[in-house]
Nucleic acid binder design. Sequence first.
DNA 1: ATTCACCTGCGACAAATTGTCGCGCGGCAA
DNA 2: TTGCCGCGCGACAATTTGTCGCAGGTGAAT
Lengths: 203, 203
Amino acid sequence: MTSLKTKNTAKNDTVENDMAENNMTEKATLLLVDDDQDFLNALQPAMCKRGFLVSLANSAESAFELAKNDPPEFAVVDLKMSGNSGLVLVRQLASLNAGTRIVVLTGFASVTTAVEAIKLGATHYLAKPVDADEIVAAFEKQTGDDEVELASNPLPIERLEWEHIQRVLAEHDGNISATARSLNMHRRTLQRKLNKHPSSYTK
Amino acid sequence: MTSLKTKNTAKNDTVENDMAENNMTEKATLLLVDDDQDFLNALQPAMCKRGFLVSLANSAESAFELAKNDPPEFAVVDLKMSGNSGLVLVRQLASLNAGTRIVVLTGFASVTTAVEAIKLGATHYLAKPVDADEIVAAFEKQTGDDEVELASNPLPIERLEWEHIQRVLAEHDGNISATARSLNMHRRTLQRKLNKHPSSYTK
DNA sequence: ATTCACCTGCGACAAATTGTCGCGCGGCAA
DNA sequence: TTGCCGCGCGACAATTTGTCGCAGGTGAAT
């Protein structure tokens, strides 16, 4: 139930219907902040389609400038920008408008980072790579954040490994060689592992 | 810090009445919550020595009872107790006294769990195993702007696995067969892996 | 005492996964 | 163009798993 993903044939109607309700007023404003232009380009239309009025910023500074004039209702901030600016921005956004729902992204599932972000005002955390639906889910999730499935994570070792690999891989922009080195494993092995799991294998 | 160099190295069983000592300086009250008695026993004297007035609880319920009458200034809560009680307790403690500094522990480096705990009021997060100094450091750390080491964690896959195994193993009280099943790996393999690394966890 | 249900360690051997080498290709900067 | 680096992939040896099975131990129920 967690990740329903849009198995919906047409995400369009769903969204449009949803939006139909608040459509009369105006779309929700969303600020995307990431220094990776490709990422912005990829996400922007997707979020538009989902009913957000999207602004883009490729640095914490410009994001702050934008936000100062018109604090967005939602924000997606990549922590992995030059410097700690990502975290700083989170705090700035939060203080500009405490109501802003901020989702933080990082290529790495660094607990400390995530925790820090939350303390500073982020409302949710996601590890890259993410897709638009996950982000939307994160925004919506907030309402009833009661039951949290925790602990009891006998996570099959194999999967643990896979996720770890994915993260590090993402962190290295998909560079297999670099990832292998970083993980201290042989390129060939990583290669083979990646080949095995084309995509799926969820839980 | 500020170690009171009082000669009482002995572990006072009745931690509550430290008044007998009548130090003009009041010790900070600390509540340790973990269902692992050994853990409590190990940590209690250590924290005492570091100048805390320690109370113990081996369940979220009893912890709550204790806290109701006398909300502690500091708390260490193991999230990994039966049920979601750990998280619930965090929230309870926070609402009893917003000023309570709560450090949350988990055997698992689960990002989501940590994040959730923070949202509910914890002020810091640590992964087991920890030592007393780390906890104290966590307490002292101000929530303000800390330098956060981003990413930087290309954790060798092999170690990731090892730690994971150790956790799950601990979770099953060292039962190899059960752990193997839980991890979805063969007993023989686990056995061999464990044999390889002679020195178990440290720190 | 005996049976049962489980755990533990360990030997052995086949099956599967890794470690290594090396080749050819394709970008990219000097 | 040359050199550096990354990518995919074949091949083969070195290791590591998956499986079986056996012997021994423990605790509870019979």
